[in-house]
């Protein structure tokens, strides 16, 4: 399915990530992170994993990462996607 509504989860606190999702035909992933060189590919892979596990094939997914752990990134993204899909 494709995301049709903007939603967000998370914060800009250190160790957290702010996830903003919105409508898009394809899966567009944008990541900003202080650890992009060390974990950029790992973060993108987690985003693809979570999107796939929730059946999302289209959506603009933006992460403003503040050095969040992988479990945090997955949890925030899951919540943002569920909020986007709620009430539909």
């Amino acid at each position: 399915m494709k995301l049709t509504k903007e939603a967000r989860a998370g914060t800009l606190e250190s160790g957290d990530v702010l996830v903003i999702v919105g409508p898009s035909e394809s899966l567009d992933i944008r990541v900003e992170s202080p650890v992009i060189r060390q974990f950029g590919e790992s973060i993108r892979q987690s985003v693809r994993d979570v999107a796939a596990s929730l059946g999302v094939t289209g959506g603009a997914i933006s992460l403003e990462d503040q050095g969040a752990l992988d479990c945090t990134i997955r949890a925030r993204l899951t919540t943002a996607i569920k909020r986007s899909l709620a009430d539909e």
Binding site: V35, R37, Q38, F39, G40, E41, S42, L69, D70
Partner: peptide
């Protein structure tokens, strides 16, 4: 085990 293994720069 907490962070994952960082890519080497």
């Amino acid at each position: 085990s907490i962070t994952g293994r960082p890519a080497r720069i």
